[in-house]
Design a protein around this nucleic acid. Sequence first.
DNA 1: CATTGATGTTGCAATATGTGGCAGCGAACC
DNA 2: GGTTCGCTGCCACATATTGCAACATCAATG
Lengths: 262, 262
Amino acid sequence: MSPVSRLPVRALAPRRHDEILRRLSAQGSVSVAELAEFFDVSRETIRRDLKLLSDQGRLGIVHGGAASFEPSEPAMSLRSQENAAGKAAIGRTAAGLVRDGMVVFLDSGTTTLAVAHALTELRDLTICTASLKIALHLCHVPGMRVHVLGGEIDPGEEAASGIDTLDAMARFRVDVAFLGGGALSPDGEVTDFTRAGAEQRGRMIALAGKAYFVLDSSKFGKLTPLRIPNFERAAGVIVDADPDLALVEALSQKGPELIVAS
Amino acid sequence: MSPVSRLPVRALAPRRHDEILRRLSAQGSVSVAELAEFFDVSRETIRRDLKLLSDQGRLGIVHGGAASFEPSEPAMSLRSQENAAGKAAIGRTAAGLVRDGMVVFLDSGTTTLAVAHALTELRDLTICTASLKIALHLCHVPGMRVHVLGGEIDPGEEAASGIDTLDAMARFRVDVAFLGGGALSPDGEVTDFTRAGAEQRGRMIALAGKAYFVLDSSKFGKLTPLRIPNFERAAGVIVDADPDLALVEALSQKGPELIVAS
DNA sequence: CATTGATGTTGCAATATGTGGCAGCGAACC
DNA sequence: GGTTCGCTGCCACATATTGCAACATCAATG
């Protein structure tokens, strides 16, 4: 859409966005009607604001308004419902790349959780993850040794993050890593929401023998702000549907193999 | 347009869902009538909400309301059912020893999980734990910063343990620690099942400003093999029923205060 | 085991909300 | 000055949510 030349820094719109996000983190949810009255703009304008923020992944749109991802337990479970079939297919394909005896790193996220489910078919794996849900799930599978990375928990991801996590990661010798991401940008690169996330994933690419990104089709063409370091050294990107041709070509230029799960 | 038209400031659907699930995990069950009154919506609406959540497998609908599934692992969930009332009382008493702003260590185990539940009444705590369940639960409570200790997961405890965990523990400055244990032996000492567990608890006693053991009455008079180092330096032992007199006297000889929750 | 009050179910209408098209307006640019 | 572009509001129409009412079920009690 917009040729990325410069960000239009209007005075009014960003002010609304800030306030919307502030309210969201304070109250958990906001309604379109309430915001329209507060800013004295039309409801359409508010909806456009919410759509924008939603595309950036900063909130979730619901009937009547928007809800924050953070404080709500459903956020994660709801997200894991979205495109469940696609994620399951990605999980099976990912599991096909793993052999018994390997050391596997699993990133946090709903798509990697699907990979975790698929991995239960295997035996004798060492799993390394920062995700509480994944650890909790896989630790009961016979033959799996699960290591959890320490750190401060990010409630949105339900996973550890931060300095301690980066630190702990470096101690492992990882055969294959499955990483999530915020978006598959039109120029064929996986991007992330946060600085910390991008850094963590970039490091894991460097650490792992092979690193695959797992992204379901809802992430295609979205835009998130952070590039992931070392992306071109990743082994592949596993998706559940063919991206458009431009994206395929852009990706093939970068290096990582495109794998479409069926 | 919108000249202050009468806007019912009703809660958005996801907000209701969050609250319903929150109540479920707190109380185990909710009633349609109570929810309808709370949200000021009709009972049909509540039922539709419950139907939706039920379709997602997040609760079970029963006549009159809904009940929590607690889709947890049998080993752990079975244990947490035992003497639930006693554990809840211990939890409340333990929470009474905590003040806003403190750094709290929570050991793994079902009794400490009850403490975690009780701590949700507080705000502005830093939690440090090796237990996946505790981390997962508390990370969604507003005002809580949760740190998880890294390490290999023990499936029975659903918590990290081992060298890495001991290592990570040492980095924290802990105000108050709540520790589990295998048994309260007849000679007034808390003992443990495993060498690793005893070592970890002993270290935490040394690290924390105050360390309390939380033990429900099913642990009285049992015998487990490992003594816990530094036990005499613990601040107290919180239980849910009076132990017999000999045990009380033996304990008072050692040092830690005996606290009986009501 | 029958009664009775509470609860669950269904169809429907009212209202609120979402969507897409279009035009006005102001800022930036040529 | 004219043009373009993005933001905004208005409108018409599609969709979703909710409450009501009538009826079916359930479960506790005597």
